[in-house]
């Protein structure tokens, strides 16, 4: 008992430290007066934060990544949510095949996904660039969306839709008034996950992007020459933004709960 009491917090806590070490490192070195290579500490400066687009191509690649992430997420979330709904709520033929088609991308390593798509694009003679990346990201994000949303759909009581129909809501209205709002948290979670995966993806992107630069690709390419400190600044800033967004969300829902308890 004693052992279990301290073992979990200590090991768990150390693991969180392990998780955060490189992030702290990135953060600290975002204030480095680095010059060309950001390998050793050369002194404190605000410059990188004041002027994030100072190094060539950093901001451009970031904008590209954000754009790809948003578009791919929107498509993958929409398509994936529909599939999840269809799989749980409706019967149709080829279900087994559909299940396989959904699970397989999850069981396929990124190199293979990237390589096979590249083979396909080469075959079709499509020029690699923005759209080929969006397609590639959509494919691998979709399976995650399906799995996430499907769990939500199957925990949804089908009686609720029936109750809506019973209370004069057409199937369409029943969906928008009842099903969709109840699925929304799951859909949002899936979309966030999807965006994170797309934003952070390197391997698939590397296979299918041609000359199109994304943020991870930019860092990978410049790793050999030295990553500019502005990249550290952007990495830190993204981390902080993500942190704030989720924390604010949590505080709001916490407040709401408290308020409801008072009613």
């Amino acid at each position: 008992m004693k052992l279990g009491r301290w073992f979990v917090p200590v090991v768990g806590g150390l693991a969180f430290v392990y998780l955060l070490v490189p992030i702290v490192y990135i953060f600290v070195f975002s204030f480095n007066d680095a010059g060309r290579t950001n390998l050793e500490w050369r002194g404190f400066t605000w410059d990188n934060w004041a002027n994030p687009c100072g190094a060539p191509a950093v901001c451009e690649s970031l904008a590209n990544s954000l754009q790809v992430g948003i578009v791919a997420t929107l498509i993958a979330t929409a398509l994936g949510t529909c599939i999840a709904l269809g799989l749980v709520r409706y019967k149709f033929r080829f279900r087994k095949l559909t299940d396989v088609l959904i699970i397989l991308p999850l069981a396929t390593p990124e190199v293979v996904l990237g390589a096979s798509l590249l083979a396909q694009f080469l075959n079709l003679g499509w020029e690699l660039g923005y759209w080929t990346i969006v397609i590639a990201h959509t494919v691998f994000c979709m399976s995650f969306v399906i799995v996430t949303v499907r769990a939500r759909v199957s925990s949804l009581d089908p009686r609720l839709e029936e109750a809506a129909a019973d209370l004069y809501a057409s199937p369409r209205l029943a969906f928008w008034k009842v099903t969709f709002p109840l699925l929304l948290p799951g859909i949002v979670a899936a979309a966030l996950l999807s965006f994170a995966m797309s934003f952070d993806d390197f391997i698939i992107t590397n296979f299918n992007s041609g000359n199109f630069q994304t943020f991870p690709k930019f860092i990978y390419v410049s790793a050999t020459r030295g990553i500019p400190a502005q990249a550290n600044m952007i990495g830190s800033a993204m981390f902080i933004v993500a942190l704030l967004v989720v924390i604010i969300g949590q505080i709001i829902s916490y407040r709401k709960k408290k308020q409801l308890e008072k009613v």
């Binding site: 990135i26 966030l192 860092i219 981390f239 993500a242």
Partner: peptide
Amino acid sequence: LVLLIAPFFSSFILRTQA
């Protein structure tokens, strides 16, 4: 929980390089 998810946004290549 946020600390588990947020690293995704700081780029895994950047972290690996770190």
